[in-house]
Simulated scan of single mutants.
Amino acid sequence: MWSLGDATNHFQLKHLANAEVRVVRHNILHPDDVRTLSRAIVPHAVFADPQIAAVGLTEQQARERGVDHVVSVRNYSEAAYGWALEDTTSFVKLLADPHTRTLLGAHIIGPQAATLIQPLLQAMALGQTVDQLAHDVLYIHPALTEVVEQALLAL
């Protein structure tokens, strides 16, 4: 018997249910090669104005749990595209482990937040360090992703 979606977790997110469908389908078709789905890193987004996207720990959660962390915050206006948007309220906030140099959380409020968080989510899932993301990847100028690059470089 297989279940998915709201019956299996508290997240109530369509993108998580979609991933669960793929796992359940695979497991029904390939019972000798059963897969599981990790829910350790589950992003969410609110498609409001401004957009809000987040994954991982918040700074408050890190403090409450006694998790050693460093924080970087960069305003959209600090990147060329954000400046061109005349955006004065949007930002990227990143939390990283100062020892492993991996991301603990990413929080973005502003235009395209749900898209901007995707490479950070991918880095968390693959165990990439903030240094790899900041120094081993080219960020297109003047794309809005430069604000993510700036936040990574500040870590």
Rank of each mutant, 00 (worst) to 15 (best):
M1P: 05
W2E: 11
W2K: 04
W2S: 10
W2H: 14
L4E: 02
T8E: 14
N9V: 12
H10S: 13
H10Q: 13
H10G: 15
F11A: 07
F11W: 15
Q12P: 00
H15R: 09
L16G: 05
A17M: 13
N18H: 12
N18F: 09
V21R: 04
R22M: 12
R25W: 06
H30D: 06
D33P: 00
T36G: 11
L37Q: 13
S38H: 10
R39I: 08
R39E: 14
R39Y: 08
A40P: 00
I41R: 11
V42I: 15
P43K: 11
V46I: 10
F47L: 15
P50G: 11
A53M: 08
L57P: 00
Q60W: 02
R63G: 01
R63K: 14
E64I: 02
E64S: 12
R65H: 12
V67N: 01
V67P: 04
D68F: 01
V73Q: 13
N75D: 09
N75R: 15
S77K: 15
S77N: 11
G82P: 06
G82Y: 03
W83S: 10
L85T: 01
D87P: 07
T89A: 13
S90H: 00
S90W: 00
F91Y: 15
F91R: 09
V92K: 00
V92L: 03
K93D: 01
L94C: 01
L95I: 02
P98V: 06
H99V: 15
H99S: 12
L103D: 04
A106S: 11
H107T: 02
H107S: 03
Q112S: 11
T115R: 00
I117W: 08
I117Y: 07
I117S: 05
Q118D: 06
P119T: 03
L120T: 02
L121K: 07
Q122G: 11
A123M: 07
M124R: 07
A125C: 10
T129N: 02
V130R: 03
Q132H: 14
Q132A: 11
A134H: 07
H135V: 02
D136I: 03
D136V: 00
V137W: 03
V137Y: 05
Y139K: 06
I140A: 13
I140W: 08
A143T: 15
T145I: 11
E146F: 03
E146D: 13
Q150K: 15
A151W: 06
A151K: 08
A151D: 07
A151M: 08
L152A: 06
L153E: 08
L153D: 04
L155S: 06
